[in-house]
Structures are given as structure tokens and as C-alpha cells.
Design a protein around this nucleic acid. Structure first.
Length: 423
RNA sequence: GGAGACGUCGCAUAGUUCGGCCUAGUGCACCACCCUGCUAAGGUGGAGUGCCCUAACGGGCACCGUGGGUUCAAAUCCCACCGUCUCCGCCA
């Protein structure tokens, strides 16, 4: 949720952000109007209610005929109070509805435009070259007995898969390596629920434009989370945090579920785009003034992971129109995938400033003791998808795959993944 | 799934019988000041969260698990839901 004070004091700034996102600037004027309506409705209710309460004291002290007369007199007032109360509620709901449609004001420097208008911040590592025909990750996965798409489809349908043998171990290895990196940087590990209540799902902003991406269990009114960010953000909802000892950093380990609606025919081969995968997610609660510096740290840790795994990548500053409604800025780290001749997203890190915290009511005590929304940030540290880049980048002519040194401790010292006879 | 108990301002509690002196009391912890040259000493005062009005001083409204309802008036009465605990049953 945007800051209502900012809305009142600097609507032009929010309009400019809406423009950059390709969203409606008119919403800002609608919100201002709804805010005015709401506030006058509340004032009217409170005035009447105060009158009624004063009357109540007199009624309580009176007796006999005098009391009867007073009760009769105040009855019509009670009706007006009820009416004003309902009007105030309705005006508040109307205001919320409009405000909810406005995205987090973007940070200065975020490129305007849509998906293709990102800015490349840097490219790191040489593009891998092969003196043999490179195999794609699925072919390698099948040779290694690591990925079984056919049986995934048999059991659960398209975009489901089994990781088996070295594939299963590989995922655990990457996840564990990420967990160790997180631990080394002061993150508290957290294995999170993957089914959450509607208010947590909407509080994190995932029921907005991308609601059709989310699995929902109507019988239980629960949502399956597409990232542990949801549970991690909800973890401290309705709380006042103590940030005097620095930011609170959590590393959430969870399975993630995504419908991938609207991407039919895209990335149908292999495990690039699937309905279910695992992810280690960083999540930080920090002071608003420290958020941008923390954002830079999150990207740096992500880059360390890719570098240690020997992957080539670029970092992009995502354009405003491609940000989620909660994010004020988003950096993606994209790894080079040889057989696609393209960079593909492996991590994403968003600075949600105070937007998410305001909706989830997560605050800290600022100087003077005033409660103020915290800033929240999140970013990927490892996912199942990393297997794709890893297999393709380190493949060798015979279909074996070299294990980067940093990963070996997590695979019992294994240096090479060798093809198996059967799958 | 069945039966029962419970949910109050950080923690612990009073208040719910029978609606109105509850503007929610008290203890602990907390903050400021005073007193005492020391130790878990004593005194005075302050202090919850959100919203609304105001340039400010200040004032108002809401919140007793959540949401409805009854009433001139609800922590208190009624309904539904959520959560916690105890016992029983069931269980990959």
C-alpha cells in the first residue's frame, strides 16, 4: 500500500511512477477524491457518536419518567449514528479499493517501460564455447539419469517432473550451498508453510495482476505460495520490530507452486518453467533509509553464488512496467544458457520499500517512539532452475558434467557427473 | 471427528453473575523526576495501537480473539467463525 501522506502531499510523484509503469495516473486523482470523502465521512460519524455517548451518561444517571423521556429523545440520534457509521465504513472500503490499485512508487533511476526496456548493469564471465555440439539440459539430465519429465507428466501432468539420482542430489547440493552462504551472512533459516490464508496472500501483493498464477484450494480457502516470500513477509505481520541491532534477515526454504498460466507453449522442454520447484529465498526487514544499500548486498550475494558455480551472467535493472506492484526496484541476475543462446533469469531481488510492510502492518519504533513501517526486501539465492545453467555450462563432449569446485563438498567430493546406462 | 475449558491495554490478572458509577482497575516490567552516599529500597508522575480534526496547544472516535446482531447504551447478552489447552476417537 502506498503512503497516504505521500498521496496527499506529493501526488505528482505517484502519478509519474504510474506513468513509468504504464499504469493509470488517473487512479491517483481518484484516490485523492476517495480520501477526502472518507475523511469527511469519518468526521461526521465521530461527531454524532460523541454526542450519543454524552447522552448515554445522562440516561444512566436519570431515572423514572426523566429516563424514559431521554431514551425516547436519543433514539433518532442512534439511528443517525448507525447510518453515519455505515457511510464511514463504505467510504473507507472505497478508498482502499482505489489505493490498492496503485503500485509502489518506483525508485529514481528505474527505467520506464515494459519487459524489454530493462537496463543491463553488468555482464560477468565469458560466454562458454564448445568444440562439440552442446546438449541441452534435458538431454544431459536424461543421460545422467537426473531428470525424468515423462514420468512427471504421467503422474501429475505437463510441467511436472521427477528429479532422481544425481538430479535429486544436485538440487539439494545447490540449495545447501545457498543455505550456507545465507548462514554465513547472518540469515536465520526458516522452513515455511506453503499454504497461506487469503489476507497474507493479498498482503504480499500476489493477488493483484498475477492472481491467475496462483493455485487456490477453495474447499479450505488457502493459497499455495509461489515463493516463500509470502510466508516470510507474513511472519512478522502485525508486529512492531526491534531493528536497533541491525536488519532482520531470513532465509526461507520452500517448495514453490506456480500455475504458469498464459505461458502455454513457452519453455515446454525441461525444467526451465515448471509448476513446482524448490527455492531458497532471502528476506530482509530493515530501516527504510538502509533499504537501497541492503538491496545492493542481496545482489552481491546472488552474484557470489553464480560466480562460485562458474556461471556466466548479466545483471539487469528491470523496467518499471515489469515490476510487481510491491516492488520499487528489481534486479534480476540472468545466467547464460548455451543451447538457448540467451540469458535466463536465475534470481530476482526486489526492494519493496515500505509498501509491503504497510499492508502487512509491520513497523519499528523510530526516534521519538513513533511507529513507522519498515522496509522489506527479498531475493533468490538458489532454485531448481539453476540445474539448467549448471548442466549446460559445465558439460563435456561425452555427456558428462564437471562439478564446480564450490559445489563438490555438497556432493561428497564428486568431481564429475557421469552418464548412467538407463533412466 | 466428539466432549469440555479458555481468549481483557508488553507479561500476569480483576471486571462478564444481574448491560449504564469501565473514561477497563491492580501487580510486575518500563520511562522521567525526586529522595536515599551502596545491595530485588522508597516517593511522584508518565506510559498501548490505529484513525480523524487542528498551524500549534489540544481535542475526538475506535479497539477487551475476529465478524455480525440485540439495545438509547455491550468487555458484559445472542449468533457464527478463528485460535489455544485438556480428554476421547481416528491416522500415510
Amino acid at each position: 500500500m502506498i503512503d497516504p501522506v505521500l498521496l496527499r502531499e506529493n501526488p505528482e510523484l505517484i502519478k509519474a511512477s504510474q506513468q513509468a509503469r504504464g499504469d493509470s495516473p488517473e487512479l491517483v486523482d481518484d484516490a485523492l477524491a476517495a480520501d477526502a470523502t472518507r475523511r469527511s465521512a469519518i468526521s461526521e460519524y465521530e461527531r454524532l457518536r460523541a454526542e450519543q455517548k454524552a447522552f448515554g451518561t445522562r440516561v444512566a444517571q436519570a431515572s423514572g419518567d426523566e429516563k424514559k423521556a431521554l431514551v425516547a429523545e436519543v433514539q433518532s440520534l442512534a439511528a443517525r449514528v448507525k447510518q453515519a457509521d455505515q457511510a464511514a465504513d463504505a467510504a473507507s472500503v472505497a478508498f482502499d479499493d482505489v489505493v490498492r490499485g496503485i503500485g509502489n512508487p518506483i525508485i529514481d533511476g528505474v527505467p520506464a517501460g515494459g519487459e524489454d526496456d530493462f537496463v543491463v548493469l553488468r555482464e560477468v564471465g565469458a560466454i562458454p564455447e564448445f568444440d562439440f555440439p552442446a546438449r541441452d539440459h534435458l538431454e544431459l539430465g536424461e543421460l545422467l539419469g537426473a531428470i525424468d519429465m515423462a514420468r512427471g507428466a504421467k503422474v501429475s501432468g505437463a510441467r511436472f517432473y521427477f528429479l532422481r539420482g544425481i538430479g535429486a542430489r544436485l538440487e539439494l547440493a545447490i540449495m545447501s550451498m545457498a543455505l550456507d552462504k545465507a548462514l554465513g551472512n547472518g540469515f536465520v533459516p526458516l522452513i515455511t508453510p506453503t499454504l497461506v490464508k487469503p489476507e497474507i496472500m493479498s498482503g504480499t501483493g500476489f493477488l493483484g495482476a498475477h492472481a491467475d498464477e496462483v493455485y487456490y484450494l477453495p474447499a479450505d480457502d488457502l493459497y499455495l505460495t509461489g515463493t516463500s516470500e509470502v510466508a516470510l513477509a507474513g511472519y512478522h505481520s502485525d508486529e512492531i520490530l526491534d531493528l536497533t541491532n541491525g536488519p532482520m534477515r531470513y532465509a526461507g526454504w520452500s517448495t514453490c507452486y506456480r500455475k504458469e498460466a498464459g505461458s502455454h507453449g513457452k519453455d515446454t522442454r525441461g525444467i526451465i518453467r515448471v509448476h513446482q520447484f524448490n527455492k531458497l529465498e532471502m528476506f530482509v526487514y530493515t530501516l527504510p533509509e538502509d533499504a537501497e544499500a541492503e538491496h545492493a548486498r542481496l545482489v552481491a550475494w546472488q552474484e557470489e553464488m553464480l560466480q562460485e558455480l562458474g556461471l556466466s551472467y548479466r545483471v539487469i535493472d528491470t523496467a518499471a512496467g515489469d515490476l510487481g506492484s510491491s516492488a520499487a526496484r528489481k534486479f534480476d541476475v540472468e545466467a547464460w544458457v548455451p543451447t538457448q543462446d540467451a540469458y535466463r533469469e536465475l534470481t530476482s531481488t526486489s526492494n519493496c520499500t515500505t509498501f509491503q510492510a504497510r499492508r502487512l502492518d509491520i513497523r519499528y519504533r523510530a526516534d521519538g517512539g513513533k511507529t513507522t513501517p519498515v522496509a522489506t526486501l527479498n531475493g533468490t539465492l538458489a532454485t531448481t532452475r539453476w540445474i539448467v545453467a549448471l548442466l549446460e555450462t559445465h558439460q563435456q563432449a561425452d555427456g558428462s558434467v564437471r562439478v564446480p569446485e564450490a559445489l563438490r563438498p555438497y556432493l561428497g567430493g564428486l568431481e564429475t557427473l557421469e552418464p548412467v546406462g538407463r533412466a
